[in-house]
Each structure stands twice: as C-alpha cells, then as structure tokens.
Design a binder for these strands. Sequence first.
DNA 1: GTTATAGTTGTTATATTATAACATATCAAG
DNA 2: CTTGATATGTTATAATATAACAACTATAAC
Lengths: 160, 160
Amino acid sequence: MDSLAFKKHNHKHCIENSISKVELMCENARLILTPVRKRVLEILLKEHQALGAYKILDILREDGFSSQPPIAYRALDFLVSNGFAHKIERLNAFIACSHVGEKHSPAFLICRMCEAVGEALPITTKGILNETALTADFVIEEAVLEAEGICPNCKEVVTP
Amino acid sequence: MDSLAFKKHNHKHCIENSISKVELMCENARLILTPVRKRVLEILLKEHQALGAYKILDILREDGFSSQPPIAYRALDFLVSNGFAHKIERLNAFIACSHVGEKHSPAFLICRMCEAVGEALPITTKGILNETALTADFVIEEAVLEAEGICPNCKEVVTP
DNA sequence: GTTATAGTTGTTATATTATAACATATCAAG
DNA sequence: CTTGATATGTTATAATATAACAACTATAAC
C-alpha cells in the first residue's frame, strides 16, 4: 500500500508524477496525449475519486472543449486501454491509475459514502484465482477486484 | 471449485438444488418467493450465463408477466440483495448464485466470447485485501472479483 | 370482521450511461 | 500532393436503470 487515496499525502506531487509518467510512456509507445486526453487525465487525477463520464464532460465543457458524450468516452477509452486509468464498474465511473507503468491486476477500495477510491498495491489479483482457473481450464486475461466499504475519513464522521 | 459452469455436470440437478435451497431459505427468513421472483431465478439458472435485465424481461413477457423494466429490476434486486443471484458489473448482467447459503465474497470467471460465467469456490476474496484494508484503515463490507478470459469451450473453438 | 399496515406489483415517465455512424481535420509517409 | 492513419466534431439513438405513484394482497391488530 502506498499513495493510498485515504492517507494524507502530497497530492500535487502525486498528480505531477502521474502526468509525467504518462507523458513518458506515450512518447515511448508512440501514443498521442492530445489536449482532451491530457485534460481528462488531469480531471481524474484531481481527487482520488471516481468520476462518471458525464461529470467529466461537464468539466470539459467549462474548459471550452466540445461536450458531446463521445468526446469524453473516447478520451477515457484511450486512458483505460493504455492503462492510465481504470473503470470502476460498480460505479460506472473512472479513476486515474495509481500505478502507471507497473503491470498489475488492479484492486480497489471504494468508499460507499464519498466514492473515494483507493487502488491497492499491484498484488497479483490474478494469482488468487490461478488455481481455480487451472482447474477449470479457464484462461484469465484480466482480473479486477472491487471492494466496497467505508473509508477512514467517512468512518470518523459516522463514529467520531 | 465445484459445479463450475464450464465442466459438464448434471445441470437439471443443479437447477433443482438451487431452487429448493432458495425456497428453504426464503421460508426461514420470511421472504416471499413470488411467482415473478421464482421465474427470474429459473431464467437465470437455465444456463451458467449472464443475462441482462432486458433479456430477462423479454422472457417474462413471453411467459405472460408484465414486461416493464421495474418488474425485472425488482425481482433482480430481491434475488441479489438476498444472495440468490449476483450482478456481473462488467457485463451489466446477472447470474444465479452457485453457492446459495454459503457466506462468500464471490469471484467470477467470465468468458469474453460466450459470456458464460463460472463462480469460483467461496474463497475469502475479502481476506486478500485484508492487510491492505487494515493498513489503509478501510472497512471492507463487500468484495467482488471479476476475471475475464476464455472458457474451455471457446478455447477449443479457437485452437482445436 | 373490519381496519391498519407492510409488502408486492402495475404503469407511466424519465434519468443515466454508452455507442453507432458519418463528416471533418490533422499530420506524417510515400 | 496525395494517401492513409489517427483524432475530433456532430447528430442521433441504443442500452441500462430508477422515480413516482396507483392498485392490489395478505396478514396482523383491534
């Protein structure tokens, strides 16, 4: 567990670090981090919180970008399929990846009160099911773990 | 790993077993397994495959039930919230639970070709994140693992 | 037996999330 | 300069899900 959303941390550093990592990876992989894509990444990085496509779209609109759904969904597709962001299926929402460049099966801690999302260390989520998959003769390509509960901040509010 | 979807098994037995377990649990818990609810459970049990709410609705319509969305969603809510079915978030679809009555954090093997879904043994998915959660001071209430890949049947088709 | 009451179902309308399809623009390679 | 690949703009629509309220049903309290 490292920069886990719920702990106090230098978030500005956290953002800058992510962006420069992504920029570097894009250069190396000949991917184009266009203005919209970069902006969406920034939006996702702003808080460790899941954001729906339409909320992102609202922010893009304020920024003067076109605001039709495909604009957001395409940028999100780019970010997700290149591992720079993840989709939280439970919330139909997206967050920036906290472990850019590190190969990992993501695992999320999702607060059901504030929708903050922490990404756990790149544990081998896949490995957990490995035996199961072998027995079943099933080839796992991707595995995602989503855990829902209460984050430390919201817990304080409920039971101070 | 037991009655895993992908293995040949006596599916009729599998269905009957699930239904009678659910009936028993409903009696004990004073829950009412109304005709629609039972029918939706049967529909979900028919194959080890995820079904969207609107597909279920189509089947209900053929059966003479009312076919407005809330009919299906309510029955599904009932089944899911009582642990008789699960929602596969990745697919926005539902399957019957393979481990009715056994407390478990579900883990699914989802075939991306045929949408068959196998539910892994009630492993302690939660436990995997336990350490992580403790460190983060996060209280996990529910955890779901969704793994996508290729099931044995579809693998045969691709590489015979 | 009537009357609350809690739970379920029926129905209409609408919200939310996501994609298809096609036009236009940009830019690098040949 | 033209071709091809990639990205963006735009319109329309598909797919998924819920809100809100009315009507019905069983049962438990009186």
